[in-house]
Design a protein around this nucleic acid. Structure first.
Lengths: 214, 214
DNA sequence: GTCTATATTCAGATAGAC
DNA sequence: GTCTATCTGAATATAGAC
């Protein structure tokens, strides 16, 4: 087992990188093999030396993307000291998830953003990988709740869906430079754990319409 | 001005319904005019009597979807009494947004789920409609913050993105019957305003790894 | 391994009969 | 208004030269 890579492997990676980036930008069906090939500096026909079909390319992109975010979250938890608070654990997972989604990793963002619009057969085959990610989040939240760090009257699976929604949707609006990932993680944890309502949030709006902002 | 509809208008609507549903399910590029026509009980060629092109059909679906959710949120606010709390206002907007997205309205869910993967030129032309929705949410949150119902140290535009993310992502996982929209709205408002952390959420996890759940 | 050339299929779109 | 038939272009995929 060596870390050395054959020339063929490097080309494969170049193609996969190009495919992930293009899939993410334009979607699966709208991406042509010509675009992928051109982004990888080759001709469309040459792709078939490395991959059997467009679907095969897609499946490998999906798998890599899922593995990367799964690994990142796993490592984020292992990196914490055993005495870390559950707030710290959640915050670390949020940060890892966002970092994979928004930095470095077209594979993960491609996976997240095109999954709903790929052929159903491929979705089915990929479900186990998605379940593994869900299971990690479920475990983090369940441990927190059992330890008393989360209210015990909330539906954790709904909380998980809403939380992952807030995270995953960021691929639709995040612009590097305009927002920082740590700031996002802070806001997520603040909302999730503390809420952003002040004590007066249930007070009657006695000024009524007069409070309207022009 | 009459509510009567010509036969042609009814057919147009039938086609638009079919298009919205199919776009939502399979994405824009992967949807063929044959599928839309077949879902509308006609032949592909006949579509061109009613619409000039596939793009034109898409643009009309997008517009209708945006209008429906915009109107629903507007009405949700107008329906409230002037003395309603800001919590009630936010809750009503969340409910309206989710209801449009998940019930009755393939147009809104199509708009939300395919927008990122349609031709860029069409995205650009549709931006004003999206901005109108953003503006409504911005106004609801800003008024709440100015009235002291929301902490004044949070970045409202980030909060808005995260909140809308949690809402919009529900098109990816919501299954009618399995979850109720009011329950979702409750959880959203609880997380957003109160947080789901208990007071012990920052306590050290003194049991360390022993707390692990099998 | 990558190229060029091409087979094949199928999409969006048009024309004219009814 | 809708049909059938068809044009045209483009996409996936293959074959064989280099």
């Amino acid at each position: 087992m060596t870390t050395e890579r054959s020339k063929s492997d490097l080309t494969r990676t170049r193609i996969l990188d190009a495919a992930a980036r293009t899939f993410r930008q334009k979607g699966y069906a709208a991406t042509t093999l010509n675009e992928i090939a051109s982004a990888a500096d080759m001709q469309a026909g040459s792709l078939y030396y490395h991959f059997g079909s467009k679907d095969e390319l897609l499946e490998e992109v999906l798998d890599i993307g899922a593995n990367k975010v799964n690994d990142a979250i796993k490592e984020s938890q292992e990196r914490l000291p055993p005495e870390a608070t559950h707030r710290e654990r959640i915050r670390a997972a949020v940060d890892a998830h966002l970092t994979m989604l928004l930095k470095h990793c077209d594979y993960t963002s491609a996976n997240i953003s095109i999954f709903a619009q790929i052929p159903e057969e491929i979705q089915q085959r990929h479900l186990p990988k998605r379940d593994a990610l869900a299971a990690q989040w479920r475990r983090i939240l369940t441990r927190a709740q059992k330890a008393g760090a989360l209210r015990d009257d909330v539906d954790l699976s709904m909380v998980r869906m809403l939380l992952l929604g807030a995270l995953n949707w960021s691929v639709e609006w995040y612009k590097p430079g305009k927002t920082s990932i740590p700031a996002m993680a802070d806001h997520i944890c603040l909302m999730l754990l503390d809420g952003i309502g002040s004590k007066s949030s249930t007070r009657r709006n006695t000024e009524g319409r007069a409070a309207e902002v022009a």
